[in-house]
Design a binder for these strands. Structure first.
Lengths: 245, 245
DNA sequence: GCAAAAGTGTTGTCCTTACACCCATGC
DNA sequence: GCATGGGTGTAAGGACAACACTTTTGC
C-alpha cells in the first residue's frame, strides 16, 4: 500500500459523531459455534446436529446460531448450550474466530468457536431434539461447513488446556474414580499413561477430596471416589512455570 | 427458554437456499485491533495512535480498522500492520474476540484482537504517522474504548506464550546477546531470573546458533551474539508436557 | 584501576520415569 | 478360583534452584 505523505501529515480532524462512523462500517453476519465435548465409554464424544441445509444433507454440524443484536458472544454461546442441552453452569470458553470467506455456502459468515465440556450423565442433561447425537470425536471425519476444522482446533486447544488446567472434571460426574480420570486423560490426549505415576501425580497435588465413598455396580474391586477441590486450586494458582519449548 | 415439543418433533425441512438464510441474519460491524509490542531500553513497548474520536480526545488507542468485505481476519490484521509500520513478515496471532455491546461509543462493534511482535530497530520499520507512538506497556493506564482491557489480555497471552514458544525472538534483532534475551523475558514476565540458570537453560536447548560475532559499542565486555535456530525447533517440537496445574 | 557485564560449575532437592506384586470384589 | 481392576514403593536419572568468583572490555 502506498502512503500519501500529504494525507499522513494533514492535521487530524477529530470525529465528532461516533455513531455515523460506525454506521459507515461494513457489516457481516456473525455466528457462534459450540464444540460440545462429552465423555462416555472411555471415548471423547462431540454433540452434533444434522445439518438443516440441503447442500449438507446427511452431514452433521456443530451447534451454532447467529449472534443477536447487542448480545455478548459468551451469552450467545450459553444461549445455544442452554437451548440444546437444558443445562446451566456448563464449562464454556472462547477458542477462535474463523473467517474464511467461503466457509459458508450462503455467503460470508464469520463464526466464533467455543469449546464446552459437560457430563453426559448429568441428570439435567436434556437432549430435546432427535436431530442431535453424540459422536465419537475420533470417528468423525466429515462435517458440514468448516466444522471439522473448528472441531479439530477445539480438540487441540483441549489437549493443551487439560494438561495445565483442571478442565477435565467438567466431563466427569462430581464424584469420580481415579481410573475414570485417567481414562479421560488418555482419551483426550490419545496416549497411554502409567497408572501408578498418574495416581501419584494427582495425590501429590493434594487437590482431590476423598469422599469416603466407593464405586458402585462395578464387576471388580470398587475404587474410591474423589471430588476435585476447585476452591483450593483457585487459591493456590501459580503463574511462573519456567521457560520450556 | 421453554421448548415447544411440537416444534422439536416436527419433521425438518432442509433449507434450500443458504444465501437467503444468511441474508436474514443480523449483521454487525466488525473490526480487528492489533496490540503491537516492541522492546527497547529493557522495556516492553506498545504502539498506539491518538484516538480520532472527539470523545477520546488526548487518549490513545490500538491500531485497528474494520474488516473489509470478504477479507480474512488475519489478512485484515496484516493489512493494518503493513499500513502502519511498513513491515512484512511480522509475527501476528489472533488472541480473542471482544463483544461488549457498549465497548464502542458509536454503537455495537465487535473486535478481534491480534497480538503482534516486532523489532523496533528493524530497518524496514517505518512509522509514517506522527500520531503514532511507542509507549511503555507498564506505564499505560488508560486507553480509548476497551483497549486497555484488550492490551492487558494480549500481555497475559504473551506472558504465557513466551514461556512455551519461541516468540520472543521476534522482538529482538536477528542477532542478539543472552543478556538482551534475558532482559526481554524479565520485562515481559515482570520478574528477575537467575543469570546462570537462564543461560544454562538456553544452552541445554541447543537452539541458539553461535554467530561468532560479538556485541559492538558496549561500554563493557562484549557478549557473544546468537541467532535462534527456528528450523531445528520446528523439526523437534514435542507435544506431551505432562499434567501440571 | 575501576565499572560493568560476560562467562562459568556444583550441589542439593525435587520431579519424572520405569517397573511388579498383592488385594478386594463380583461372578 | 478366576477375572478385573485397585492400590501401592523404589531406584535411577534428569531438571531446577541457589549460589560466587574470575575475565574481558571501555573509559
Amino acid at each position: 500500500m502506498k502512503i500519501n505523505p500529504a494525507q499522513v501529515l494533514a492535521p487530524v480532524q477529530p470525529i465528532q459523531d461516533a455513531v455515523s462512523l460506525v454506521n459507515a462500517y461494513p457489516k457481516v453476519p456473525l455466528t457462534v459455534d459450540c464444540v460440545i465435548f462429552g465423555f462416555e465409554a472411555n471415548k471423547l464424544k462431540v454433540l452434533l446436529i444434522q445439518s438443516d441445509l440441503a447442500i449438507y444433507k446427511n452431514q452433521y454440524s456443530l451447534l451454532g446460531d447467529f449472534v443477536r443484536d447487542n448480545e455478548e458472544l459468551d451469552d450467545a454461546a450459553y444461549r445455544i448450550l442452554k437451548q440444546r442441552t437444558g443445562m446451566n453452569n456448563v464449562f464454556l470458553d472462547q477458542v477462535k474466530a474463523f473467517s474464511n470467506p467461503t466457509r459458508h455456502p450462503g455467503g460470508r459468515v464469520i463464526t466464533i468457536a467455543y469449546c464446552s465440556l459437560l457430563n453426559i450423565q448429568h441428570h439435567a442433561l436434556n437432549i430435546h431434539d432427535n436431530q442431535l447425537d453424540w459422536f465419537d470425536y475420533a470417528a468423525v471425519s466429515e462435517m458440514a461447513f468448516d466444522h471439522k476444522e473448528i472441531t479439530d482446533a477445539c480438540h487441540a486447544w483441549l489437549q493443551k488446556r487439560i494438561q495445565e488446567h483442571p478442565l477435565g472434571f467438567n466431563l466427569l460426574p462430581v464424584k469420580f474414580s481415579l481410573r475414570e480420570l485417567q481414562n479421560l486423560y488418555e482419551a483426550i490426549l490419545g496416549l497411554r499413561l502409567d497408572r501408578r505415576n498418574f495416581r501419584k501425580k494427582f495425590a501429590s497435588m493434594n487437590l482431590l477430596i476423598d469422599t469416603k465413598e466407593m464405586e458402585q455396580d462395578v464387576s471388580h474391586r470398587p475404587g474410591k471416589l474423589y471430588q476435585f477441590n476447585f476452591e483450593k486450586y483457585e487459591n493456590n494458582k501459580r503463574k511462573w512455570t519456567g521457560i520450556d519449548f
